[in-house]
Structures are given as C-alpha cells and as structure tokens.
Amino acid sequence: MTAANPPATGSGTDDAKRPGGGFPWAALIFLGPAGLLLLAFLAFPIVYTVFLSFNRGRGGEFSNWVGFDNWVRLFTQDPNFLRLGFPPSGALINNVLWIVFYVSLTVLLGLILAVMATRVRYEALIKGIVFLPQAIAATSLAIIWRFVYSPDPNTGLMNAILDIGNVGPFSVLGNPDAVNWALIAVGIWGSVGFATVILSAAIKGISSEVLEAARVDGAKETQIFWRIIVPMVSLPISVVAVTLIVNVIKLFDIIFVMTAGGPGASSRVIAFSMYQEAFPQGQFGYGAAIAVVMLLLLVPVMIFNIRRFRAEAVQS
C-alpha cells in the first residue's frame, strides 16, 4: 500500500508541510532577514538604551557609570523636562496638555465633520480637503503655519485678519503663554482628516433603520448624535484616540521646525527633549533615559494592541 501510494510531493517540501518532522528551514529563510534587522535595530537597542541610561555618556563616551544620576536629574532637577510647581511645566507636562486637548478636540471635530459630510453631495471633496495634510510632510505643514502665524500683518494671515479689527499683532510662537495652544491648533489641523476618514467609515456602518426609527420616534439630531452615533462608534473612537496619543508621544517635527522648543523651553515635548539633549547637547546617557521614558509611556499601548489583536484572533 505504501509502495503503491504515489508520492504527491516529490521534492523536499515535506519539512515545510509537516513541521513536526524537522527543523523549520523555510520559516528561518523567510523570516530571517526581517528577524535579524528587528533583533539588531529594535530588540538589542531596547536593552542597550536602558543600560546606557545609567552612564554619563557625554559625547558618546561611555566610560562614566553614574547609577541613577540621569534619572534623578530628569524627574527632579530639570525644569525643562518636568517642573512640578504651580502651574507645572516642562516637556512632560506639555505632552499631557497635548494629550488632553489635541486628542479630544481632534476626535470631536472628526466626528462632527464625519456626520456633517454624510449629508452633502460633495462629501468626498470636503473629506479629501481636510485629509490633505495627512499626505504632506510635517516639516512643510510647520512652515505653512509659521507663515500663517507670522507677526507681520503684511505676511501672516492670522495677524492680517486681526489687523482688520485693529487687534494685535501677536507673535503667538514667541509668547510662552500662547505657544503651546498655537502648536496644538496646528496639530489638530493636521490630524482631523485622519479622524474624519476613519470615523466616517464607521458611521456609514450604522444601519439607517436605527437612525430612521429614532427620527420617527421624534429624537432630535443632537440626541441622535450623542445617544446613537457616538456610542455605536465607540470602538473606532478609541482606536483613533489611541493612535493620536501615540502621535503625541512621538511628536517631534512640528515642534522642531516651528519653535525648536522655544521660546526658552516653553514648548518642548518629550521627543524633542530626547533629540535636543542627546545630539546638539551630546548628553547620550541623559538622552537614553528620556528614550526609555518614551518607551515606558508606550507600553500600555503595546498591551492594548496585543489584547485587541488576541480578541480579534479568538473571534475569527
């Protein structure tokens, strides 16, 4: 019987077909290049960065081990990173400001625009316009808004408009009290399109019967928005919100190009501090500590993603 059985697979693919029966060469070959790069450029640096955060590392010379010095300095002696007075300030506090205002307003505006856009014929056009900043470099976006914010009313659109009402001119990027709000506004401008497109896809998934039934029962449009649409797209909302939070933790380009963390250090964010301390300042150990803080802030998102993915895998 075995002899008469024609070999369906004549070549050497048996090990791939039945992995119990040998070393999985195929997996190694296919996963090898990616695996090596991930080990060398992500896994190893994670360990090594944690290690180096205990070294002075000035100018890239790692000979001076300083214990927890970098960490103590980061959280207690560096007002540019964290100052817990009243009001609190520093890069970390600015990130909190960004998370609270940029994330919530982007989601809210995205939802409202998504709902409004479904009611007009030029839906694709308006979504395309609002989505456009997603395609362009944050560097260009930052230049566009530096131009809009220019204090000269003959250059900057914002001050030209204020000038009509005899207000200003204001140098919003030069004012420590205004600069973070001006930057957050740019961030929102850049991200609303992303929220709109994703939430709009979710809103279209709501059955029109549900909405019709609510209207027949005499529900107002506001009630429909808060009581039906928002709860029914709560999962996409949380996905958008998490993405935006990750954006905030990684936020760098806009700050670097628009203010370089200034005036003073009033608009620094954590990713900017990491670059600034490590490279122009040459404090590699201190920069490593900030990079570890960034990683730790992203660990909850890692867990969220893995949980979400496992849940999806169970469903399918």
Partner: peptide, 23 residues
Amino acid sequence: TTFLIIVAMLMVPVQVGFIPLVT
C-alpha cells in the same frame, strides 16, 4: 508568540535606537 512580539514592536519608538545605533 513570534507574531505577538512583532505586534508589540509596533510601538517601539525610533528614539530607542538613536543612542545605541549612532554609537
């Protein structure tokens, strides 16, 4: 497990590589 580790790596910020890799 390999795949879940890669899902976790989605969140590793580029900054983590700067100091070790530049050095």
